[in-house]
């Protein structure tokens, strides 16, 4: 069978029902695609099939015939996104990172935070609580870095308690009065 892998044509003799994941890792030697669950739940095995993210643990390799498959090794044009995952805390242990990057690479440029969450809901990360991933996506799109600024505990101690006027009361607050 033939398909295009990371921009290059490949021809393989493989059993048709083998998982695309295994063929990529074992036959093509591309181990950047990870197996986290084998249930299509964690998204660590995400690759792009004709540009659309799919779980490669659920794809029979035969169905990749004639398609364009993109793995983390072949992700092009997303250097900023990859760099931001390094600098903004999007990657910690890194095992989910290839899947997140591939899924994130398909998000519309102007996606709101809600849309980013929806687009990445098929990828599980246990290290970051996802916050670092959102920051990475935002910075890759030109958003400002938001590095934490620790402050001395003593100063916090001296900070007077909320003197600032509360902002306009929420609808919920109004209802309760």
């Amino acid at each position: 069978m033939r398909f295009t892998l990371n921009g290059k044509p490949v021809e393989l003799k493989v059993a048709p029902m083998r998982r695309l994941l295994d063929v990529l890792r074992e036959d093509c030697g591309l181990t950047g695609t990870k197996e986290g669950c084998g249930e299509g739940e964690c998204g660590a095995c995400t690759v792009l099939l004709d540009g659309a993210p799919v779980n490669s643990c659920l794809v029979p390799v035969a169905q990749a015939e004639g398609t364009k498959v993109t793995t983390i090794e072949g992700l092009r044009g997303h250097t900023k996104l990859q760099q931001a995952f390094v600098t903004e805390g999007g990657a910690q242990c890194g095992i989910c990172t290839p899947g997140f990057l591939l899924a994130a690479s398909t998000l519309p440029r102007a996606a709101s935070l809600e849309a980013v969450k929806q687009g990445l809901a098929g990828n599980l990360c246990r290290c970051t609580g996802y916050a670092g991933i959102y920051r990475s996506v935002a910075v890759a799109r030109g958003g400002a870095r938001a590095a934490p600024k620790p402050k001395p505990a003593a100063r916090a101690k001296a900070t007077p308690r909320a003197k600032t006027k509360p902002k306009a009361r929420s609808a919920a607050a109004r209802r309760s009065r």
């Binding site: 299509g40 998204g43 995400t46 993210p53 799919v54 779980n55 398909t106 929806q118 990445l120 098929g122």
Partner: peptide, 11 residues
Amino acid sequence: REIGGVQIQNR
């Protein structure tokens, strides 16, 4: 929209 994640919806 609520069936699995995007990866599942695509397949």
